[in-house]
Design a protein around this nucleic acid. Structure first.
Lengths: 346, 346
DNA sequence: AAACGGTAGGTTAGCGTTTACAGATCGTTC
DNA sequence: GAACGATCTGTAAACGCTAACCTACCGTTT
């Protein structure tokens, strides 16, 4: 039977008024108890809590949202859901939000700028309290404008460098890349190629910086022909590595700027009859689940993806509570994970 | 410019009242226009639509929700987010919902029954219009009770067989398993082991049925010792396959009931120095992204996961529109995908 | 003893929609 | 020409909650 208005009292869950009546207090008191705000005596609190528990009361989110309070909903925009890179971040986010009894409204943008903009507009008023933007398409300027409009959000893994007022969470790309490159150098490699993401992306530029820094520190002259720009996807890695490994003087190691690219590079090596790591060493970046299931298992730089998700929630909730957020740009540590795709230069 | 009090009317987005005033009509008329309900003349409609467009109006979801209308939010509970199996379903769901201007409220249950129940309770009243339950913990009886309570939901990939009134969407497990087994039989295999999921799960039982049916059709006596119960995870597959392949008379082929198990089985084979597919053929189930990146690429049964997501949205929206849903139990087709992990029995 | 600040809890006005309900106009039918 | 149904539009009452505002009762301080 669909609930109707002729079906007045118990047509679903209890309302705050019913709970108040049952507990013999006013609705305001119930509200104070469940929101832990204002003064309530021990006695009253306990009495109300008992009734709340017994009747399984929890506030109607729409009503709460309307009434100027919070909706308890956080918007999350991501380019896509299923490369593990994104899903692990999302998992971290939902986990952290769950603890605060908040929920996540998930919006994949499919890399479409328009879709993202309209989504943001919609999300930010009346639906959600704030948002997490993973790898957003928007320029720093557009995002600043949104902030000025009163939107509250945190940028996760910014695509471009953000101006100061926009809070961001990311991983120490440059340091991770430096570690990876140093590892290859220690193994005796000198012709170390890099398969990068799109130029101009922060992740690409930072990793490039780390790569070049390590090379320089070891006194190895960087060779621009060993750096190939790609797209962070398997196909791109396959194409780039095929090109690299077909050269007369081929690199003895490849540093792929994410695991997808590294997977493509491994396929390329296999396609050319080269053994990993005997003929060519390969290092990835991200440490997604794939890194452990391929053969050989991939040496890669771990980004604490779930932690990135949790940290951005923490930043956002502080932002929403009106606290001044000090650390606007949080950068989490990266670690090199040694597995089986790297070996001493042959 | 941040909204201030000196900036009274438009300190955010327009309300229906402002739009109504601008268009010279009542709020009721604006509501009728944007919801396409009731009678509105051509002229009025166009006038209102113009104002709506110019001011970028869209209804506040909380208010709409409160007022007895729809919130435009659909809850989705999943055990976890990141095995690709789930994320691809979620992707299909969001895609389908986006087209209807609806959003998804994502709730991972982490396989905790309690968490799931409380989540459902919360979700279903006041927050969302309905829900999609992926692989829910609840018994058919519990779910029936929820339906009687007026909750609207669709079960995706039911864990147990559901009683009739609960709508479900799943893939043709039994037929897929039959195809996989038949394929191995055609290759000359006779000792075909099965690594299953937990007994009692629909997916396990159905796949077992298909496996046994194909064996029977080929006149091969089923050997209960070749069937090992596991947990649908890599570790389980590793353990089960290690056991199977260490036997004196080891199976020449393994049918793993999902890709994770198959991945584990491949690791087991490698660990024992056996080559896939030369020494042992392996077939998986699901066709998640991993199947294509391992070496050798995994022969597996494809489930149309994104389509499962889209289909369940379609069922749910019909349910929400109050339409009588005819096909309560939808089963989508599965296809065997031949890759490199199977070969003629040696 | 007046004044005060801290604590406790009730009253009530919205929040932005949707939707009964009612009123108005018009063309048709009896 | 009255009655009627169809079409169009406005009025106003919810929806369930929060928070501002009040009142009232302490125990201290001046």
């Amino acid at each position: 039977m669909p609930p109707t208005r002729d079906n007045p009292p118990t047509n679903g869950r209890p309302t705050i008024r019913e709970i108040a009546a049952l507990a013999g207090v006013s609705t305001a008191t119930v509200s104070r108890v469940v929101n832990r705000s204002g003064y309530v005596s021990q006695e009253t609190r306990r009495a109300v809590e008992r009734v709340v528990r017994e009747h399984g009361y929890s506030a109607n989110r729409s009503a709460r949202g309307l009434s100027g309070g919070r909706t308890g909903l956080i918007g999350v925009t991501v380019p896509r859901i299923y490369p593990a890179y994104f899903s692990v971040i999302i998992a971290g986010v939902t986990e952290a939000l769950y603890e605060q009894d908040m929920r996540i409204v998930l919006c994949p943008t499919l890399h479409e700028h328009d879709r993202e903009v309209s989504l943001l507009e919609r999300l930010m008023h009346g639906t959600t309290d704030g948002a997490l933007l993973v790898l957003p398409e928007e320029s720093s300027r557009e995002l600043s404008a949104l902030m000025d409009h009163g939107f509250r959000f945190v940028v996760v893994d910014p695509r471009k460098r953000m101006e100061s007022p926009v809070p961001t969470v990311s991983a120490a790309s440059s340091s991770g890349a430096a570690q990876a490159t140093a590892h290859l150098l220690e193994l005796g490699h000198r012709r170390i190629a890099a398969i990068t993401g799109p130029r101009g992306w922060l992740a690409t530029d930072e990793r490039l910086r780390g790569y070049q820094a390590s090379l320089a520190a070891a006194g190895v002259l960087p060779d621009p022909r060993l750096v190939i720009e790609s797209n962070f996807e398997i196909d791109g890695g396959l194409a780039a590595a095929t090109e690299l490994l077909s050269r007369a003087e081929r690199p003895t190691a490849i540093f792929a700027f994410n695991d997808q690219l590294a997977l493509g590079a491994m396929q390329a090596a296999r396609g050319l009859g080269l053994r990993v790591p005997d003929d060519v060493s390969i290092v990835g970046f991200d440490d997604t689940a794939e890194a452990q299931i391929v053969t050989p298992r991939l040496t890669t730089v771990r980004q604490p993806l779930a932690e990135i998700g949790r940290m951005s929630v923490s930043l956002l909730t502080r932002l929403l509570d009106g606290q001044r957020v000090e650390a606007l740009h949080v950068e989490l540590e990266t670690t090199l994970i040694l597995r089986d795709s790297t070996a001493v230069a042959g």
